[in-house]
Amino acid sequence: MNAPVRNRGGAPVGFVSELDSVEAAAVLYLRLWSDGPNAKERVADDFVARLGADAGRHALHNFEDLCRLCIHYGRRPLMRHHVTCKCLGADEACFANFVATAGEGLREDAVMIATVLVRPDVALPLTDLERVAVFEIQDSPDA
């Protein structure tokens, strides 16, 4: 008899309020982007409002590529909590840690963290892509 498989990626490991502003934004944007077309539009509007039209669209394009790569090449489905949930899931914590590490320019560490999210052959392209978007969000006056 086989034991049921339990996806630990959704297990609560903390609270979103314990994250810094970049990590919390990464989790919120991931949740919104995954919550359907209306929520994706909210992400787009926020990027443009924070960064201006051109930089916002560029950052949004990178963020959408990041999300698509995580979905298409993920080791398993990326688990997320509801948009308004105060809990932080294990996969969300890994995603936030990846975004923050890539944003700090710690490329080798970011690649290592990315291998938890996606196949190893996709980790480097994922890290290069995210670094651009994160710097743009961090340089925003409202971030």
Results as ranks from 00 to 15, higher is better:
3 A>T: 07
3 A>I: 05
4 P>G: 02
4 P>V: 02
5 V>P: 00
5 V>M: 06
9 G>D: 02
12 P>E: 00
12 P>L: 00
13 V>K: 01
14 G>I: 00
16 V>F: 02
16 V>M: 05
17 S>H: 03
17 S>P: 00
18 E>D: 14
19 L>M: 06
20 D>T: 02
21 S>R: 11
21 S>H: 07
23 E>V: 03
27 V>S: 11
28 L>V: 11
30 L>Q: 05
32 L>K: 15
33 W>T: 15
34 S>L: 05
35 D>W: 12
37 P>F: 09
40 K>A: 15
42 R>F: 11
43 V>T: 06
45 D>T: 08
48 V>E: 12
48 V>Y: 04
49 A>I: 07
54 D>L: 13
57 R>P: 00
60 L>V: 08
60 L>P: 06
61 H>E: 14
63 F>N: 04
63 F>M: 11
64 E>T: 14
67 C>I: 14
68 R>P: 01
73 Y>Q: 09
78 L>N: 06
80 R>W: 00
81 H>W: 07
83 V>D: 05
90 A>P: 01
92 E>A: 02
93 A>C: 11
93 A>F: 09
93 A>Y: 09
97 N>Y: 03
98 F>S: 01
99 V>F: 06
99 V>T: 07
100 A>P: 02
102 A>M: 08
103 G>I: 03
103 G>M: 06
105 G>Y: 10
109 D>G: 09
110 A>I: 08
110 A>W: 08
118 V>L: 08
122 V>A: 11
126 L>M: 07
129 L>R: 07
129 L>T: 10
131 R>S: 11
132 V>H: 09
132 V>W: 00
135 F>A: 03
137 I>E: 09
